[in-house]
Design a protein around this nucleic acid. Sequence first.
DNA 1: TTAATAGTGTCTGTTAGACATTATAGG
DNA 2: CCTATAATGTCTAACAGACACTATTAA
Lengths: 320, 320
Amino acid sequence: MAEHDAARAERDFLAAYDPRAFAPIAVTVDIVALTLRAGRLDVLAVRRGEQPFAGRWALPGGFVRAGRESLDEAAARELAEETGLDAAALGRVHLEQLGSYGSPARDPRMHVVSVAYLAFAPGLPEARPGGDAAGAGWLPVEAIAEAIAAAEQPDTVRVRPPQQGRRSGTYGGGTGRRPLPGEQPGERPGDLPAGPGEQAAGQGPPGAGGLAFDHGRILADGLERARAKIEYTPLATAFLGETFTISELRAVYETVWGAPLHAGNFHRKVLSVHGFVEPTGETGSRPGSRGGPRARLYRAGRARLLHPALLRPDREAGPR
Amino acid sequence: MAEHDAARAERDFLAAYDPRAFAPIAVTVDIVALTLRAGRLDVLAVRRGEQPFAGRWALPGGFVRAGRESLDEAAARELAEETGLDAAALGRVHLEQLGSYGSPARDPRMHVVSVAYLAFAPGLPEARPGGDAAGAGWLPVEAIAEAIAAAEQPDTVRVRPPQQGRRSGTYGGGTGRRPLPGEQPGERPGDLPAGPGEQAAGQGPPGAGGLAFDHGRILADGLERARAKIEYTPLATAFLGETFTISELRAVYETVWGAPLHAGNFHRKVLSVHGFVEPTGETGSRPGSRGGPRARLYRAGRARLLHPALLRPDREAGPR
DNA sequence: TTAATAGTGTCTGTTAGACATTATAGG
DNA sequence: CCTATAATGTCTAACAGACACTATTAA
């Protein structure tokens, strides 16, 4: 290491002398912004106006302003620019780092390291349509499932035999709604608390038929993170407004997980996890209902972690 | 977004034309390499020979070679350089991305984005001592607990009231060993499946009394990730040799978590999780034992995920 | 009235954890 | 013999999930 450390210090010194003479690596942030609109999981995307991948959808993002902002700040800025949200509305958005992608081949022009972020937002307005650039909008996640599947092809992904996991159903099997037909269940081998890894970034046909660059993989990683995250944290509430009903919260889980949940068990479970939700004392009016009593309203509680967690149904166990 | 997208494409073009005229941000990888030596959790560190932070310990790392390697490859290369391991030995090491840190102030010389990696390794040999640089070595994690605590000070960390969580003990309370006196339990509010976030990176007294730069915070994030990771994955076996006894595996958990576990319950639990370990049919000779039957030997199983998980004791629930 | 929903109650199988017990080895 | 450990057994409380039931509203 010693020789290396010295060499590093040396290069550091040179870099400090003239940064532009060094480090021809660009740093960007890309955002996987998820929202629920009309019972569908949508991701924010922009249509590229320039080569490469001109005309293709891509995740919103941009360069980090060197010396002027942190990665978190860059991500928040890009998200604000892309959605047109003001600081107040942005305060309600959950934003967390997802992982970094830095294969030399992921951008054909130069070596670009992208730090990906994951955002959960309540139903947001239409994205700001493009001026002269091609445009922006919310895309149904299932509509680009093929892109995800394509990006999932390469090596690192272990193909799992279609054996049954041991946990057959969670709160599940009953009244379920919104089966999300297009969505293919469990595309990722569920490396849940792990970092995304970036072994296969830039591999395979880049964005074959789907998102530009390796954004298909980034989206897949973001979705898996989202699905895992709402198991252990109350962040599902970040997809909802200030107050919500238990049914609306259940719809979030069903949409993100792509699986129906048992209404009764879910209801009791949510209320039993302390700090997840707290009652407002009011009842909602629920437009678009097809009957039934008015549901009570809740708001997000103070817990940052759910104990016990709300585990997903169909998690595959090891061979049993 | 449109205007922004156009601007981005423009800059992309310029960057492609002359990369050196753009992006004065350096990209490095830093490694949190953990190993178990003599029942202690050690982290690989190098002593800096140059300013800033000359003479201080830092995480091993270095610049990503632009256009020539991915982030994963850079991390593996740096780890190999620092430990002197060959490719074969490195194959037994688990290496995963931890998160990226990019506050403009985290390095006083220029804007440096560091992509941190986390490594689990079985008892490794002494690190290669420095040539002319100050040196390298394995540091007991608890010895730099103060540095972690210092880096944990700033804003983002929520101070938790000392109330009791509801899960009072896991496999626990019994015969426990190695109480890790210096280790302060639960320094991180346990945002487990989250990315580390980097809000406070570079905040506070940089490396006050501890590691250089924001490496104290990176180490803290790595430790939390490690503690969470062995709950859901069989990666605790990455700290051990090819074969091991259940007791040795328990020692890994006790050391990483810093809490004693109940031997009997742990034993039964591990064997009940399918694909965690598989018996070799042999029994070990266990030098240094103080009596008792010879334990059976196991090797790591094929499962990549533990179901059900081995949850840590003392995880705090929401207010109960 | 019918259908759909909110919210509760009850039952069963599984699991975590406390605790006890037996067997095997070293000093 | 004494002590420490390996490995297994037993008991209890908690929990997940299945299922049933009531009450309330829209159409």
